[in-house]
Design a protein around this nucleic acid. Sequence first.
DNA 1: TCAATGTATATTCCACAGCATATAGTGTAC
DNA 2: GTACACTATATGCTGTGGAATATACATTGA
Lengths: 156, 156
Amino acid sequence: MSGAHAAADFSELFADLVRCETRLYHALGERLRERHGIVTSQYEFLSYLRDHPGCRVADLAAEFAIGVGATSKGIDRLEKQGWAARRPNPADRRSSLLALTDDGARLVAEAERTFTDGLAELLGGALDEPALTALGRALATLRAALERDQVGTPAG
Amino acid sequence: MSGAHAAADFSELFADLVRCETRLYHALGERLRERHGIVTSQYEFLSYLRDHPGCRVADLAAEFAIGVGATSKGIDRLEKQGWAARRPNPADRRSSLLALTDDGARLVAEAERTFTDGLAELLGGALDEPALTALGRALATLRAALERDQVGTPAG
DNA sequence: TCAATGTATATTCCACAGCATATAGTGTAC
DNA sequence: GTACACTATATGCTGTGGAATATACATTGA
C-alpha cells in the first residue's frame, strides 16, 4: 500500500515539477523577449559565459544537459547577434574558447535585472521563506544526484 | 543585503529546477522510447486522456501550459499511431472530444509501469522521505499559484 | 433574421533540439 | 613517423513547439 501511494506521489511530484518549470520558463521568456530580445535559454547561455569565460561548447552542453549540436547552434545565434565570440584555443585547435563580447556583457547585465526581478516576483509571491528554503535544498540535492549519475545526459 | 542574497538564491533555485526537469524528462523519455516507442510528452498526453476521457484540445493545452497548435499536432501524431481518437462533439460542432483507443489504453497501462518505476528509481534514489515530502508540497503550492494567476500560459 | 463578437481548432511559418554523421585535430602504440 | 583510436565541434535531417493567421462555429443582441 505504501508502495502504491509513493508511486502516485512521484507522478504528481513530477507533473508539478514540469508544470512549474514550463510556466516559469515561459513567463520569464516573455519578459526577456519584450525588454531585451532574448529568450530564457539565451539568458542562461549568456549568464554562463559571463561566469565561465574561456569555456568550450562541451562545457555548456554538460551544464545544461543538452546536446553539443544544439549548443553549437545556440552559440552560432549568439555570435550572429554579436553577443558572444569564439576564439581559437591555443592549447587545442579542435575547440574554441567562448566569451561574451562587450555588447553581450552589457546585455546580460541588463537582462539579469529583468530575470531576477521576475523570479523574485513569481517565486516570492507564491512561496514563503521556509518553503523556498526546503524547495531549494531538495532541488539542489536532486540535481547533484542526477549529475553525479549522468542521468538524462543526451547523446549528441 | 538580504535582498541580494534572496535574488541569488532565486536564480540558483530556478537553475536547479530547470536542470532537474531536463534530466528527468530526458531519462524517462529514453526508457519510454526504448520500451514503448513514445516520449515523455506523449506519455503525459496519453495519461491525461485516460484520466479525462471526452476532453478537448484546449483542455490539454491548459493543463500542460503549451499552445493549442502544438497540442493539436500532438494529438494528430497520437491519432496517426492509432492511440487516440477525435469524436465529434454533439454539443458543440467546433470542438472534438478526445479519447484513447483500446490500443492507447493498453499502451498507457504498460508505459505507466516504466514511468513510475523510473521515477521511483530516480527520485527515491536521490532524496529521502522528508525531502520528497517537502519538495512535493512546495511544488504543488507553487504550481497552484502559477495556474491561479495564469503565469506563463502561452499565446497560440 | 442578421450582424457583430467571441470561441475552438487547424494551418502556416519560423526557430530550435536531438541524433547521426562529417570534419578536423590530438595522442599513443608500435 | 605512421596508423589507429579518441576527442571537439560543426552540419544535415527530421520532428516538434510557439506565434500568428485562417476557418468554422456559436452566442449575443438589435
